[in-house]
Design a protein around this nucleic acid. Structure first.
Lengths: 135, 135
DNA sequence: AATAGTTACTTGCAAAAAGCAAGTGACTAT
DNA sequence: ATAGTCACTTGCTTTTTGCAAGTAACTATT
């Protein structure tokens, strides 16, 4: 069979870019995975260890969807033992301003929120992040 | 028990501002209503007329939640017949940068998206928006 | 060489939310 | 009176979420 699949049967709701974004990332978990990727997390277990506690089946589903959307790429990042990890594509990294805007709004308008670092997620992952356990 | 209720029984998933944002606006419809409000729409019927076609029960639910979150305010905007409309609060208007970032990302990475106007939603709703029907 | 442990998932199922259609009440225009 | 509009509400089916348990591959331990 020449063409296995046309592209995506998921019909877009409207030509509005906001609507298009929400079709891809409009739920309570997807952007948290992207946030973790900005923080330098790459492995399945690291995403699971985030304080929000994403259910494992949803994590697998979101990673698959993010991959299908071209926002993340799965690739080996270590051998012996061979391990595969997830990284942001260019398309995914371009979500940085979205996360930054959310962080700014949240810090201003949601009491009790705080970032671990001062750095906005648009910055590259800090090298000296200690692994005191998680997060 | 000193206080009758702290504030909201909806438990926050983590102190992360991204997580806090997604608890409020992390779904496929809420930000579309906010977008419409930025476009100057105020009435229930105007939100319904948007091309995405939000189900009426979800629209009512989202408006109630946005009100409870302090993002929109319901208030009379006309009398005889008395009509109530929805407007963005300061907190709601501060979502402008989030929408702008989403628009920028969508226009860059989602093929086939287009904005009706050139104006980004961060600008205040234009006064001279003609009511040629919708949008 | 079994045994146990870690990692990265998959599967099953109950509960919640989404989505659709129809209905309701207040007011208005004919 | 009758019909129409507006802003919702209600009922019901489908889809998604969330939780727990299970599985496969590989590694470290005894």
């Amino acid at each position: 069979m020449p063409g296995p699949r046309p592209k995506k049967p998921s019909l877009r709701r409207s030509p509005c870019p906001v609507s298009g974004c929400l079709d891809l990332i409009g739920d309570r978990w997807t952007l948290l995975v992207v946030r973790d990727l900005f923080w330098g997390k790459r492995r399945y277990g690291e995403f699971q260890a985030s304080p929000e506690g994403i259910p494992t089946n949803l994590l697998a589903d979101r990673l698959e969807r993010l991959g299908a959307a071209g926002i993340v790429a799965r690739r080996p990042y270590q051998r012996n033992p061979p391990r595969y990890g997830y990284t942001l594509t260019r398309k995914g990294r371009d979500l940085g301003p979205v996360l930054s805007a959310l962080v700014a709004w949240g810090k201003r308008h949601i009491p009790g929120t705080r970032t671990l670092d001062e750095a906005a997620p648009v910055s590259r992952p800090s090298r000296k992040s200690r692994r005191t356990g998680r997060a």
